[in-house]
Simulated scan of single mutants.
Amino acid sequence: MAYSGQVTVGGAPDVHELSDLIISKVAVGKYTNNVYLLRCRATGEQLLIDAAAEPGTLLDLVGTGGLASVVTTHRHPDHWQALQEVVAATGARTYAGRDDAEGIPVPTDVPVDDLGTIEVGRVTLTARHLVGHTPGSIALVYDDPHGHPHVFTGDCLFPGGVGNTHEDPAAFASLFEGVTTKLFDRLPDETWVYPGHGDDTTLGTERPHLAEWRERGW
């Protein structure tokens, strides 16, 4: 069955199989957070994006293959409720944006800056620092050498707009500029977007609405 990116809490993961990387998406918790498990096909190494909730569900998703690392996209508690349990069970290294690390109660082993890289086996993810939803949010870009890019946006970009900036015009301007210049201006329309909640989208689907987002201010 083709990957759709549509998942429900308590439901089965949806799996996106790429040439070098397998991406499993699952929804967890009362805020319906998306969690993504990335597995390098060449080495079997695995990386988890946002240990949001339901540690048992996440450890079942990881399975017996071990977990090398966990990336937390930003400091908001709904994205790290299961982090302590997952790290305790797996010994995984922890990554987070440098400016959000202090707001995450589980110590961050590797603070991440803009254009910093994170490896999962032979696959490289590149971080983009996006300020506005939180001070240190990061998106993770996988530039698939066999196809189009893939970007994991946390709560910075969704179908229909950027993340919540709490009616703060300066925060919105910062996040909108960051998403525009670091994602839309640099990546093609085919880029697949995996957000922190809800369904997936593509940059091409959202690009025609950028002026509308700027005008409305959210």
Rank of each mutant, 00 (worst) to 15 (best):
His76Asp: 02
His76Lys: 05
Asp78Glu: 00
His79Trp: 10
His79Lys: 15
Gln81Tyr: 01
Ala82Phe: 02
Val86Gln: 00
Val87Asp: 00
Gly91Asp: 06
Thr94Asn: 11
Thr94Gln: 10
Thr94Ile: 12
Tyr95Arg: 08
Ala96Asp: 09
Gly97Tyr: 11
Asp99Gly: 00
Asp99Gln: 09
Ala101Lys: 11
Glu102His: 14
Ile104Ala: 02
Ile104Trp: 05
Val110Lys: 04
Val110Asn: 03
Pro111Gln: 05
Val112Ile: 15
Asp113Ser: 12
Asp114Thr: 05
Leu115Met: 06
Gly116Pro: 03
Thr117Leu: 03
Thr117Met: 07
Ile118Ser: 00
Glu119Gly: 00
Gly121Cys: 03
Arg122Val: 04
Val123Asn: 05
Leu125Gly: 01
Thr126Met: 02
Thr126His: 00
Ala127Met: 07
His129Arg: 12
His129Asn: 05
Leu130Val: 10
Val131Cys: 12
Gly132Leu: 14
His133Ser: 13
His133Arg: 11
His133Leu: 01
Pro135Glu: 14
Ala139Gln: 05
Ala139Asp: 08
Ala139Phe: 08
Asp144Gly: 07
Asp144Phe: 12
His146Asp: 15
His146Pro: 02
His146Cys: 09
Gly147Gln: 10
His148Pro: 11
Pro149Cys: 12
Val151Met: 06
Cys156Thr: 15
His166Trp: 09
Asp168Met: 13
Ala170Pro: 00
Ala171Tyr: 05
Phe172Trp: 08
Ala173Lys: 05
Phe176Ser: 13
Gly178Thr: 08
Val179Pro: 11
Lys182Glu: 08
Phe184Trp: 10
Leu187Tyr: 03
Leu187Pro: 04
Glu190Lys: 11
Glu190Phe: 04
Glu190His: 06
